[in-house]
Design a protein around this nucleic acid. Structure first.
Lengths: 255, 255
DNA sequence: ATACGTTGTGCCATATTATAGAACGATGTA
DNA sequence: TACATCGTTCTATAATATGGCACAACGTAT
């Protein structure tokens, strides 16, 4: 596994990752964070600055993520996005609530796209954000579409972090919850991530039969009554089946 | 100048840059493009894949930009964005046309944000795109806010690429055009980038008195009559002056 | 003012690391 | 069947990053 990996590059990416929770960092701060000699860190940082992946704030002397990283980030093409966005727009016009597309990234889900009501339109600040798979409807939807061994493996691996009083922090309850999702085809999240926020989600399968993405509708709990959620669930299942078929999924294997 | 630059890292970024015009590339293709031995390229590519900055398409065997690059790209914080977006929204509601925020990146401008009419709302595909400074209203706006020597330097350096019949490809005409911008305070683009597209833009100054960004309004030529453009220009100048002051600009130096 | 603890930055010999050549199996083409 | 071309692995050697040391600049406390 640990072969043919260029270390200088990995270290550079480690440095970039330091900026996940901090907006601006100095050379020494970074070198402490990832246990790298100040001089080495400086060399890498200088290189990243030279390539505009980092920028120096001349007034503070510290560094921040650079414009080139932003630019290249926008170049990442997800065919999935092109395929799914029209469906999200359809969902928005149907239910007048925010529709999301997420993909699985290991033990996390990453928001790829968010179609909101016109009121708050703009580049969504949530796009690109990352959440653990157990705390969201989309996470549970994806989990429900994984084979049992992989499902168990993830649940064993991740800490069930409590976000609200309703967050499911018990493995067995989570597993039961997911079994129900497998029957109904869609997952729900009742303020498990945030008080006042309710979500409905369904998984998207690829050609190998694995759930790797999901779409959801999210809205204030007050507007998400049982009947509406059921309609949303049905629509989501219909749509994800269509998308999965587009992606080459044949609903023959594993339920 | 070329000191303390880590080459493996620069090569990795060169590889990422290969994907600007191509969505999927193979190892050999990349190694040819940047004149790197296949084996070396493979090592770097493997590392980037390991870090999820590249992804392998198992069916084609080729590589594409990865989700981690997207995710980190969204982490790039531009305070500027936070400051300017409210103004863009104000412009949109006032003129009902698309409003943009760009920053200068050497001889180019990069679109940071684009606020569009509700009709086409979503993550703008144009955000992150890069255009030469001479072909756009925003580019000319920024040029007008640079000191003469720097202005001349850029104009000498860049090729004046022809996009449409109206693109300004003559240095002298471009310079005269920019002098007019300095008087009026705002720049205009009459189908110089694209037939049917007209823009009005004004520069944003930082605390050192240099123009480093600009905002613009763009719309179909048919709706952008002289009187409207004048109103837009006035609004843009007002707004950019306010933003520049927020950023610490003191309109004392250089006109 | 002086002294100290930081900071970011530059230099240089050494030891670690990436490099590029050759060769592999797999796939596609003539 | 034979030939190209693909991605991938291995290895010795050559090239490179490393990290110790030192410096100037800044802020803080003596």
């Amino acid at each position: 596994m640990g072969n043919a990996i260029i270390q200088a590059l990995v270290r550079a990416i480690d440095i970039l990752n330091c900026f996940e929770d901090a907006e601006e960092l100095g050379v020494t701060e970074i070198s402490n964070k990832i246990k790298l000699h100040k001089s080495t860190a400086f060399n890498i940082i200088s290189t990243l600055e030279h390539c505009r992946y980092l920028e120096k704030n001349d007034t503070t002397g510290k560094y921040r993520l650079g414009i080139e990283l932003f630019r290249m980030g926008t170049k990442v093409k997800y065919d999935l996005r092109k395929i799914v966005v029209p469906y999200l727009e359809k969902l928005l016009s149907q239910f007048k609530e925010t529709a999301n597309l997420v993909v699985r990234d290991g033990d996390y889900v990453i928001y790829l796209e968010k179609i909101e009501s016109p009121h708050s339109m703009r580049i969504s600040t949530a796009a690109g954000s990352r959440l653990p798979v157990n705390t969201t409807a989309v996470g549970k939807a994806i989990l429900s579409g994984l084979p049992d061994n992989e499902l168990q493996q993830i649940i064993d691996a991740i800490p069930l972090v409590k976000f609200t009083d309703y967050t499911i922090c018990d493995q067995n309850i989570l597993l039961e919850n997911i079994k129900k999702v497998r029957i109904s085809g869609y997952a729900e999240d009742f303020e498990e991530l945030e008080i006042g926020l309710t979500c409905v989600a369904a998984p998207i399968f690829n050609h190998t039969g694995q759930a790797f993405a999901a779409i959801s509708i999210s809205g204030p709990t007050s507007r998400m009554q049982a009947e509406i959620r059921e309609n949303m669930g049905k629509s989501l299942v219909e749509i994800t089946q269509e998308i999965s078929r587009t992606l080459g999924y044949k609903p023959s294997l594993k339920k």
